[in-house]
């Protein structure tokens, strides 16, 4: 008979609970540590940019450059705005973005409606064609598009800047999903009420799809605001359509020794978007994750 070495069945629960509590606290600390570290990584470059934008140029050459501006050069901001023409560039970016966003929504809504609610020949083939555009990134078509735009005489115009982007396969895909998930009874009810297709679209579908459309708007906005290659290729020598992205590059190139001014320019370009981010967080998240969660 082996000595009874059975584990004490009635061990008090206290050690286990304390163990869990300690674990929990450690995990909490670890969690906040990771969060803080992550925040530092994200914030520090931005903070430094703001600080550097207020330094005197010779201070910038110090090692280390000061972490706080003792002699804030507030003039860099109006300088960046005026000599950097930032007002014009932001205006151009806004025009570009508004055109692209609104027209992408229009074309996507129309096409998605057709795929979701209408019957017509070759519907499946056409849908595959629409989806296939997702496989052809814009960069692959740049060469010829530039040629097309220039033969239309649209170089350095807003048409040339925006027209290639007025349709989006992603938008059609997204909206079609959303339309298809509307209760089918709505369609029946509308028909019974004598609504034609167009009225169904404007009176029923659109109002109910506002969140998704807002999400698409945010996605389009970010995509178009952030464009660099195409505006670079299509812009001319002047400020007629030059957008903020290209304008910032221009500002930096002409201010190689006045780095504080070009950094002030980046802050001006960046802050409004942060404010928009805070306001439109929900839509942003929704648009960026559409398609990820099944």
């Amino acid at each position: 008979m082996p000595a009874s070495s059975a584990p004490p069945q009635l061990a008090s629960p206290a050690p286990k609970v304390t163990h869990h509590l300690l674990n929990y606290r450690l995990r909490l600390i670890a969690r906040y540590l990771i969060l803080t570290l992550g925040s530092l990584i994200v914030i520090i470059p931005i903070y430094l940019a703001i600080v550097n934008s207020l330094l005197v140029p010779s201070q910038l050459a110090h090692q280390p450059p000061p972490f706080f501006p003792t002699n804030p050069q507030w003039h860099t901001y109006p300088d960046a705005w005026s000599s950097g023409h930032l007002g014009v560039y932001i205006r151009n970016s806004l025009i570009q973005t508004i055109i692209i966003v609104s027209l992408q929504i229009v074309t996507s809504v129309l096409a998605a409606f057709a795929f979701a609610f209408l019957e017509f020949p070759f519907k499946r083939t056409l849908f595959v064609i629409f989806l296939s555009t997702l496989m052809i990134p814009f960069e692959v078509t740049v060469t010829q598009n530039l040629s097309t735009i220039s033969s239309l005489g649209w170089m350095n115009t807003f048409q040339g800047l925006t027209v290639p982007f007025l349709a989006t396969g992603f938008g059609v895909f997204l909206l079609r999903q959303a339309f298809l998930s509307l209760p089918p009874e709505l369609r029946e009810a509308a028909l019974l009420d004598g609504y034609g297709n167009v009225r169904f679209l404007t009176r029923v579908v659109l109002p109910l799809s506002r969140p998704v459309i807002a999400a698409l708007a945010v996605f389009s906005f970010l995509g178009s605001w952030n464009q660099y290659l195409w505006p670079l290729l299509v812009s001319g020598n002047d400020n007629k359509i030059r957008t903020v992205q290209i304008g910032l590059k221009q500002l930096a190139a002409t201010q190689l020794d006045q780095i504080n001014v070009s950094l002030a320019g980046t802050v001006i370009a960046f802050l409004p978007l942060i404010i928009l981010l805070i306001i439109f967080q929900k839509q942003l998240v929704r648009s960026l994750t559409a398609g990820s969660v099944k």
Binding site: G38, S39, V42, I43, P45, I46, L48, A49, N52, L222, W225, N226, Y228, V244, Q245, I246, L248, K249, A252, I259, S262, L263, G265, T266, A269, F270, L273, I274, L276, L277, I278, Q281, L284, V285, L288
Partner: peptide, 21 residues
């Protein structure tokens, strides 16, 4: 909000900031 913020830093902004650093 902090972690999401890099989504709105456009290409030019990020490049200039890091270029300076």
């Amino acid at each position: 909000v902090i972690f999401s913020s890099t989504v709105v830093t456009s290409v030019a902004v990020g490049a200039l900031i890091f270029g300076t650093l």
